[in-house]
Nucleic acid binder design. Structure first.
Lengths: 205, 205
DNA sequence: TAGATTGTTAATCGATTAACAATC
DNA sequence: TAGATTGTTAATCGATTAACAATC
């Protein structure tokens, strides 16, 4: 699904959705033009129209796009309405912060639980979500029907964690460990290295 | 600086550096070929050679690239050796997790402190770094000579935080709030929306 | 109608890959 | 020398932008 649309367009979809949702419901934004969206987000207006065309929501010349319908189209495009379950591996600072973060539900994603190896943490709850032993990973992922996972373990454990997740039926991974995850055929991976991003910014100064 | 090199090449530099640093110092990796790097990182080998050419480190036909020199060249390219100071705004779960994270020093970045509005948090320490009042932001950024900042506040406060940071002389921002930061002429911004990334992954399944 | 905006087709731009000569 | 690998030039690919017809 969503395989025939450009990668970069796909990446902007949540940005559009998020922006449109933040607009006030006061009737002044029942329709919004591609130009207005483009300006707010710092994009080209033709680019915005092209992207929005993928959602199937048609704009009206002289009027713009119907905001509510556009939001629905974007939600539909991003499958926000079919609930998906995610797990976190690693209940350190980052893992715990994410467990408490409420933003996932905006995209129909529910955090089911986290896994850790520390006996002190296992059995406790963070953000109302249980922290389980990694030994229960396979079984728990199946139980929750989890398809998404976030890796928040030290770099040295990232690769084996990814392999474990693959075995557990996870289909996509968001990896925060500063390590390359390889040999995960069939599992989609996005890497986010916070320090590296800051370094990139620094080198651009 | 580093303005005449492709954006995407720049983004891969920390990946190369990180990978090369993880290789064992057992003498088997004194030289490494672009093909080996490419395979390990899932990139094309010509692409790797092109990227590495920007660092100024020359490889040797039949041998490959001298690993230690290449690491130095990458460090030099990313300005790892001139120390840069960074601050975090928002000492919630994410802000605190980042305060405790040691990975920034790999890129010559030192976290100086964090700022928050919560009187309960102000005056305390996390990860050995003080949490100060946002009212001290301007003054403290100057004092530490901070040029980098991480925004880890709620979306609703992101824009005003960015403006505050700009006034305080911050030159680049890593924004974790799911909100668009605009009107920050002259300040570089990278946005990281964790939930959006997970949503993108989910929609690709 | 005139003006604003959409949607599409063609042109441009930038990044990646392919081909290949140079080198050790 | 033969083989492996680099570095560069040309070709390809994909994404963005420009031009413009269609529409309300």
């Amino acid at each position: 699904m969503n395989k025939d649309i450009p990668e970069f367009s796909l990446q902007r979809m949540p940005v559009y959705l998020n922006y449109l949702r933040t607009l006030p419901d006061d009737g002044n934004y029942n329709f919004i033009s591609s130009g207005a969206i483009a300006q707010a987000l710092g994009l080209g207006e033709v680019l915005v129209r092209k992207d929005l065309a993928y959602t199937g929501c048609a704009g009206r010349p002289k009027v713009g796009y119907p905001r509510i319908e556009l939001i629905s189209a974007l939600e539909n495009f991003l499958c926000v309405n079919d609930a998906k379950s995610a797990v976190i591996v690693g209940a350190g600072g980052l893992g715990r912060a994410l467990l408490c973060y409420g933003g996932f539900k905006n995209y129909g994603i529910e955090l089911a639980c986290a896994f850790d190896t520390d006996p002190e943490k296992i059995g406790t709850e963070v953000g109302g979500k249980p922290i389980l032993s990694v030994e229960q990973l396979q079984e728990s992922c199946k139980k929750y029907g989890a398809v998404l996972a976030i890796i928040a373990v030290p770099a040295s454990a990232a690769q084996q964690t990814a392999e474990l997740l693959k075995k557990a039926g996870i289909k996509a991974i968001l990896n925060f460990a500063p390590a390359q995850i390889t040999a995960c055929d069939g599992v989609k991976v996005i890497n986010i290295d916070v320090a590296a991003n800051l370094a990139i910014l620094a080198s651009m100064l």
